[in-house]
Simulated scan of single mutants.
Amino acid sequence: MAKMPKYTSELPAGILSEIEVSLLHPAQPALGYREVNYRVQQFKAMSSKELDAYLREHFLPVAIAPDGLPYVVDHHHRARAIQLTGLRKTVYIKVLENCKDWTEAEFWQMMQKNAWVYLYDKDGNSIEPNEIPANLAQLQDDKYRSLAWAVLEAGGYQESNVPFQEFMWGNYFRQRISFEDTDEEFTKAVNEALILCRKPQASKLPGYIAGVGEGSASKAK
């Protein structure tokens, strides 16, 4: 396969590039690490050729900030999982917007307008852009984001194109379920959440399926 150009802050929008994953900056403060760990195992099961082909097809969308830093605007779980595998140092990205000539205020206004940044921490509290971790390795673990992912995998709601869908469901569960982050407690929480998915209070959430409540917590561990 043809080599992609290495990342520089001068890349225009629309360009595909290769970058060291450690150089990527997150546009959210937290992840669901159960999903990350699940993806780690998926990637480790691939050959190096299969993994490279997968990453070329599933590139990471990036916005370049005024200081030249590349911010990942989606698929943070995939990026962090690749980093944790230790199998390779680079990933492939696509520049959606180069904002080097913008002010910081203009950049963050654009990020929020496009729903490319999520300004809530692992406990659901609002934060400022300067409180986002400086790199992927510093991302916090939001157990309710993991719960929302497991419930999605179990069929509790449908995947949609609404940005931060799993965080929205995670916050819904956060207000209604309390659990310790052990495998046993997590499985119980998934089963409880599957019932909550069919409640009228969930009907406004993206991907809601009327009457859903049965499923399994097969990916809870």
Rank of each mutant, 00 (worst) to 15 (best):
F179L: 02
A202S: 06
I209S: 04
A53W: 07
K122A: 09
D101M: 06
K100Y: 00
M4G: 05
S17A: 11
P61C: 08
N114R: 12
F43N: 03
S47E: 01
A189Y: 05
P26F: 00
L194K: 10
Y71K: 07
E50Q: 13
Q83V: 03
L55G: 05
F167D: 12
V190K: 11
P70E: 13
I15W: 03
E104M: 01
R174C: 11
L152G: 04
K199A: 12
F59W: 03
N135L: 07
S9D: 13
G156Y: 01
L23N: 13
P206L: 02
V95G: 02
H58I: 11
E185D: 14
Q138W: 11
K199W: 06
A63Q: 05
I132Q: 01
E57L: 14
I64M: 05
E97M: 10
M46I: 04
F186R: 12
Y118L: 01
M4Q: 11
P206N: 03
D183H: 10
N114S: 12
A202T: 03
D181S: 10
S146K: 13
P26C: 01
P200N: 15
V117T: 14
N125L: 14
A105C: 00
V162S: 14
T8I: 00
M4N: 12
M46W: 09
N98V: 00
L119Y: 10
L194D: 09
F173Y: 03
S17M: 00
C99S: 13
H58E: 07
L96S: 04
N191M: 15
G170D: 08
K143T: 06
S47D: 04
E50K: 04
S9W: 02
E159D: 05
F59D: 01
C99G: 13
V72G: 04
L84C: 01
L55N: 04
A2C: 04
A30Q: 12
A30G: 05
S22A: 08
D74P: 13
D141S: 03
A202H: 08
L23S: 15
I93G: 01
E131P: 07
V72N: 02
P163A: 07
A65H: 15
P163N: 02
G124Y: 07
A137H: 04
F186T: 07
D142L: 09
K100M: 11
S203F: 00
V36I: 13
Y172V: 00
C197Q: 09
P61H: 07
D123R: 02
D121V: 14
K199S: 12
E192H: 15
A150E: 02
A81N: 11
A79K: 09
S146F: 09
S178C: 04
E106Q: 15
A193M: 10
N191H: 15
K94P: 05
D52G: 00
R145T: 13
S178R: 07
E184M: 08
N114K: 15
D181Y: 14
A79V: 10
P26D: 02
K221W: 05
A134N: 13
A79P: 14
G170I: 06
E214T: 14
L196Q: 03
G86K: 12
A30C: 15
P66S: 09
